[in-house]
């Protein structure tokens, strides 16, 4: 152990020991810790009005247990219910910051729709975002259309924008649901790369449940992406904007 007499070697060895210990010992006890934190969560969600559809996942996508839950299954709930659930879960002992699988922004429910929804609808009336056959990869030719959509959405950045993917009725409904959601997520990714913040975009896959009005459910023209302005964040005046008493 002669090498440990050099101070820097010893310090680095200590650092490595810390990392190894944290990963092995901390990692080994983490599942039980996460389980214990997660135990009272379903009851709290149900009490806050989430029923049993809203679930909290206490692990990262790669499976590592975490104290920071990701909440799923709140697609149909109002913003105030989501906020109540979030507060109830975050108030439980041991729970870290929470996030929603489909977007985080907490906003007011009542609003007058902004013109940008019409702008985007007008863009998409004439042209469509195309995908490669039975894949969620956006066709290269649709890039410029997405540029225009991003530009049209930019004035509405205070609002929550829902991206819904639709398919026609070919294939199984399960696969259609998954594909429509993947396509909506691909559009969200493309918009985020063009500077629209991830937090204001919600995605949902509708499958073939909502065909275009006046079209047969099997019509390929039902394959589409729709944008809806869900709600707007309240405008909070900054101190500069607010006239003082004097």
């Amino acid at each position: 152990m002669e090498f440990l007499r050099k101070p820097y070697t010893a310090i680095v060895a200590g650092l490595i020991a810390c990392i190894v210990l944290a990963y092995t010992v901390g990692g080994a006890s983490a599942p039980q810790v996460a389980q214990r934190i997660a135990a009272p969560v379903p009851a709290a969600i149900a009490e806050a009005g989430g029923g049993d559809t809203v679930r909290a996942r206490f692990s990262l996508p790669n499976g590592w247990p975490s104290r920071h839950p990701v909440l799923t299954g709140a697609e149909g709930l109002s913003e105030s219910t989501r906020a109540r659930i979030a507060h109830a879960v975050a108030a439980l002992p041991g729970v870290g910051g929470i996030s929603w699988a489909d977007g985080d922004l907490m906003v007011e429910q009542h609003f007058s729709p902004l013109h940008c929804q019409d702008d985007v609808a007008a863009l998409l009336r004439a042209r469509t975002i195309r995908f490669e056959e039975s894949s969620a990869r956006i066709d290269a030719a649709s890039g410029s259309l997405i540029d225009e959509v991003a530009a049209a959405l930019r004035p509405c950045l205070g609002a929550v924008i829902r991206i819904s993917g639709h398919t026609d009725r070919s294939g199984s409904e399960e696969a259609n649901l998954a594909l429509s959601r993947e396509r909506a997520e691909a559009v969200r990714g493309a918009l985020v790369r063009r500077g629209i913040p991830n937090a204001v975009l919600r995605v949902e896959g509708m499958g073939s449940a909502h065909p275009v009005e006046g079209l047969e459910p099997g019509d390929p023209a039902n394959r589409r992406i729709e944008f809806t302005v869900v709600s707007t964040a309240p405008l909070v005046p900054t101190p500069v904007d607010t006239p003082g008493p004097r």
Partner: peptide, 30 residues
């Protein structure tokens, strides 16, 4: 952040405090 990384942060903090204290008490004299 996974739990083992939170453990790591705490351990590194404790390690840094320990190193600092050790240096302040014994390291300066020699």
């Amino acid at each position: 952040m996974p739990i083992w990384m939170e453990v790591l942060v705490l351990m590194l903090l404790a390690y840094a405090v320990g190193l600092g204290l050790g240096w302040a008490i014994w390291g300066r004299e020699s």
